[in-house]
Simulated assay, not measured.
Amino acid sequence: MLILLIPLSANAGVYKWVDANGQTHFGDRPPAKAASSEVKVHSAPASVDAGARERHQKMTDFLDQQQEEREARQAANAKAEEKAEKQAELCRKLRARLKFLASVSTFYNINDQGERIYVNEAENTRIREDFREKVRSTCGND
């Protein structure tokens, strides 16, 4: 029974009718309460002219270019985010080291015999200030 209905649905017509207000309507099924007539619809051949193909190609090229640019921006943003995260981690470590240096009372060097040679107070101050400047230049004043 269903096989017999398939050809009918493939050849479904277009119906035209006029409602009580005088407006014309079209549909794929005839209305129940109005007189209708079946309209023959002639479809244009499916050929595409050269201009349409060219417009389609230009649109496709434009969309491809937009996609490439979007992907390039996303890659650049991801790279910038990664760089910012690395910079933030470096600054966190430098600030922790600066805090540690503030707690150290005096610095020393180790000579060739493995002995500690303590530096004077001026050298202690210079070491701390040099490191403070390194943190400022690398991380800013925040």
Rank of each mutant, 00 (worst) to 15 (best):
A80F: 05
L90R: 14
N77P: 04
K79N: 11
T60G: 00
R53M: 13
D61W: 00
N77I: 12
G22E: 02
R29D: 05
Q65C: 06
E69F: 08
A10M: 15
A78F: 00
A88E: 14
E54T: 10
Q87N: 11
V14N: 03
R70P: 02
D64K: 06
Y15H: 08
Q57K: 06
L63S: 09
E81D: 15
E81T: 15
E71S: 13
P45N: 14
W17L: 04
Q67C: 06
N77E: 15
I6M: 05
A12K: 14
S47A: 10
A32E: 12
A10D: 09
H25N: 09
C91L: 01
E69P: 04
N77Q: 15
A76G: 03
A72T: 08
P30D: 01
Q66P: 04
A80G: 03
A75G: 03
S37Q: 07
Q66N: 07
K86P: 02
F26R: 06
F62V: 09
A84N: 05
V41T: 01
G51P: 03
H56N: 14
E54D: 14
R97Y: 08
M59E: 13
E38M: 13
E82M: 06
K40H: 10
E85K: 11
R53F: 06
A35N: 11
E82T: 07
V41E: 00
K33G: 13
T60R: 02
E68H: 10
A32R: 11
Q57W: 02
A52K: 10
I6G: 01
L98E: 02
R29P: 01
A34T: 14
R55A: 04
Q65K: 12
H42S: 13
E38N: 10
V41G: 00
M59Y: 06
F100M: 15
A75K: 07
Q87L: 15
P31N: 04
K99T: 11
N77S: 14
H25V: 11
S36H: 07
P30G: 03
A50V: 09
R53S: 05
T24K: 05
